[in-house]
Simulated assay, not measured.
Amino acid sequence: MKRMLLFLNILLVLSSCSNTTSVIKSEDNQWKHQKRENHLNNRNDSSTWDIKMLKQDQQDIDFGDSGPFQLGVFPQPKYDLIGKGSFKGVGVVAGQFEIKDRKIFMRSFFVKENSLNKARLIGRKDEVFFQILVLTDTIDNVNYNLAHSVVLSRNHPDYLGQGFISTKDNRIDYVAFITAENNAYAIVNTRIFDLSFGKTILIAPRKDQTLRSLQIKSPEMSSDSITKYTELLIKDEKVIEFFQSKDNI
């Protein structure tokens, strides 16, 4: 009888915790929705815009080809309206790697620790939200015009990066973004990737003009660790097999 009472008490405690968690999640989602609505209103309210930043963007409008989208200059609400310390910076890590005789371009986008993401970073100075590795059959070490990328903060508190990597007969275009709610997606030559299932995307162009992709469930990474991770990744048998296929370029 005592065991039965103890079991029932445990069930009541677990049920209470579950209900509390549900309330917290509900309130959290409501808070996010309200913040989103406020941000949208600020986008439409010229009194909230950062005019100095807008004028600077106008001067830099001729940025050149940086990926699938032409860069747009939109007025943006002042970043601190989201919250003081809500933006600390974004960046790109680039690299070139080799698997035997195969050449691989790597690009990754990261967001620095700020007041919105610091709880999940657990001490890391930034977080990589997207990484792409593309097999290529050509390298330009003179003009460096076969690959380019850029990551932008102008959707703060959401961030978007894009770029391209050219092969002899093809071009791989990609775009990726992460939201303040930590939802992240990428598009590579019209294929959609939900990055919650893996932040690392491998692309292998084939001789017949088709493409192959492999999504990797990579660990949480920072800009400091991404290169070392990639060096280890390209030694993985599955990755070697993917890039070394006889049908690849």
Score class of each variant (00 low, 15 high):
Lys228Val: 11
Lys228Pro: 00
Ile240Thr: 12
Phe7Ile: 10
Asp247Ser: 14
Thr167Phe: 01
Ser166Tyr: 01
His33Gly: 09
Lys238Phe: 04
Gln30Tyr: 08
Met4Pro: 00
Thr190Asp: 14
Arg191Gly: 00
Asn42Val: 00
Asp126Phe: 03
Phe7Arg: 15
Asn183Ala: 09
Thr200Gly: 04
Phe177Asp: 06
Asn143Tyr: 09
Ser47Pro: 02
Ser218Arg: 03
Gln96Asp: 12
Ile226Gly: 04
Ser213Arg: 00
Asp247Tyr: 09
Asp224Ala: 13
Val93Pro: 02
Ile139Ser: 09
Thr136Met: 09
Leu214Thr: 00
Leu54Trp: 04
Ile172Gly: 01
Lys168Leu: 12
Phe243Trp: 02
Gly89Lys: 12
Lys246Ala: 15
Lys246Thr: 14
Ser245Met: 08
Lys55Arg: 13
Phe164Tyr: 15
Leu14Pro: 00
Leu233Gly: 03
Trp31Pro: 00
Leu195Gly: 03
Ser218Lys: 02
Asp126Gln: 04
Asn182Gln: 11
Arg36Ala: 10
Asn42Trp: 14
Ser218Asn: 11
Lys103Tyr: 09
Glu98Leu: 04
Leu14Arg: 08
Gln162Glu: 11
Arg154Asn: 14
Val90Glu: 03
Arg171Pro: 00
Thr21Met: 12
Gln76Ser: 10
Phe110Thr: 06
Asn117Leu: 03
Ser86Thr: 08
Arg191Trp: 05
Glu237Cys: 00
Glu27His: 08
Ile10Ser: 06
Ser218His: 05
Ile178Trp: 01
Ile99Asp: 02
Ala204Asn: 10
Ile178Gly: 02
Gln131Ser: 15
Leu8Ile: 11
Asp28Tyr: 14
Val175Thr: 14
Leu116Ser: 04
Gln215Arg: 09
Ala119Asn: 10
Val150Thr: 07
Asn19Trp: 06
Leu12Tyr: 07
Trp49Leu: 02
Lys103Trp: 04
Lys207Leu: 07
His148Ala: 13
Ala180Val: 08
Thr190Ser: 15
Ile203Tyr: 01
Leu5Ile: 12
Glu231Cys: 12
Asp247Asn: 12
Lys52Gln: 11
Pro75Lys: 04
Glu127Ala: 11
Asp60Ile: 01
Gly163Lys: 02
Leu202Lys: 04
Lys118Ala: 12
Thr210His: 10
Ile165Glu: 07
Ser149Pro: 01
Ser15Asp: 08
Val73Cys: 11
Gly91Glu: 05
Asp62Tyr: 09
Ile203Thr: 14
Asn44Leu: 13
Pro75Gln: 05
Ile82Ser: 07
Asp208Lys: 06
Leu133Asp: 07
Ile122Asn: 13
Leu146Gln: 06
Leu233His: 05
Gln215Phe: 08
Ile132Gly: 03
Ser222Leu: 06
Val150Asn: 08
Met4Asp: 14
Lys246Phe: 06
Ile240Gln: 15
Ile61His: 06
Asp137Cys: 10
Gln30Ile: 12
Glu37Phe: 07
Ser149Phe: 01
Arg171Leu: 10
Tyr79Lys: 13
Lys84Trp: 04
Asn114Asp: 15
Gly72Tyr: 02
Leu81Thr: 07
Lys55Leu: 15
Gln244Leu: 15
Ala94Thr: 11
Glu27Ile: 10
Val111Ile: 15
Leu116Val: 14
Arg102Trp: 00
Val134Phe: 01
Asp236Leu: 04
Arg206Trp: 00
Ser66Leu: 10
